[in-house]
Design a protein around this nucleic acid. Sequence first.
DNA 1: TCAAGATG
DNA 2: CATCTTGAC
Length: 333
Amino acid sequence: MGVALRPLIADYKESLAWDQLGGTAAIDAYNALYQFLSGIRQPDGTPLMDDEGRITSHLSGLLFRTANLVEKNITPVYVFDGKPPAFKEATLAERRVIRENAKESWERAVKEGDEDSARKYAMASSKVDAFITDSSKELLTALGIPWIQAPEEGEAQSAYMAAAGDVTYAVSQDYDSLLFGTPKLLRNLTVSGKRRLHGKYVPVYPERLILAEVLNGLEMTQVELIASALLIGTDYNSGVKGVGPKTAVKLVREGKFAERIVESENAADPEELIRYFLDPPVEKNYTIAKKAPVQEKVFEILCEQHGFSEDRVSAGLERLGAKKGQATLDSWF
DNA sequence: TCAAGATG
DNA sequence: CATCTTGAC
């Protein structure tokens, strides 16, 4: 989600240059992996695959994006989702339906030779499944990049770590971590700096949101921001019909939250949802330590198992700070 | 030097 | 999404 919240915080977005962003960044792994899976595809929508038909789009994306971040003095920590809270079920079910329909539409578009539609539907059929997350964790470990398993929502975990001062930012295209109280949120942390929008390429810059500025600007407390989001609709509730960002803020200011939120379809009591945003389950015992890449392991995973070219992998490793000439695949033979 | 296109 | 090659300027 996050889209619903967008108009509320639009005024507080700040475009930044890469050299202003150094620090440690808790990256929403689900969000990043979904981007790789949906974006790294051939024109007809087929994802990158090894010769056994296993998807490798996410591994390519992880290697190169991570290399870029490290080069720009940003230490990434990937945060993986755990078990979703029960009240997210309706949203997850809805996503499943959209995904399955998209898969059918993709197959139809391929048959009809409509490449543009094929790619669009292929993107929407992307699924971050156990293979995707397991293989990502394995690669990150080999790359020496820290990752953390959240007990429930990754966004909640990132927000906790940012609030605790253990990371500088939470990174996600979604805005949820603001509801979970992350002090700083980064978006658009891609390197290409360009994104396709209605067929044209438009420049994109890293974007920073500071929660305190949002709250000051809206003259709201954290609870009031959460209340506004609940009126608009979140992953955990449907929102109130006819209530958008403007009305939501107005209602909250007028003290009409409790009165109106009953019109929203909630799987949980609104008070319970507010408590969840304020104090979600998080892992508090973690260490964030970037290590040197284990080069042999990286080559084993990417080149031997998944058919990546050795040149590309070496280039990526070098940018990750691996020493050249140190045990590479060649030295094994 | 840079954008388009092919490739992973 | 990201890189590498190519070709126009």
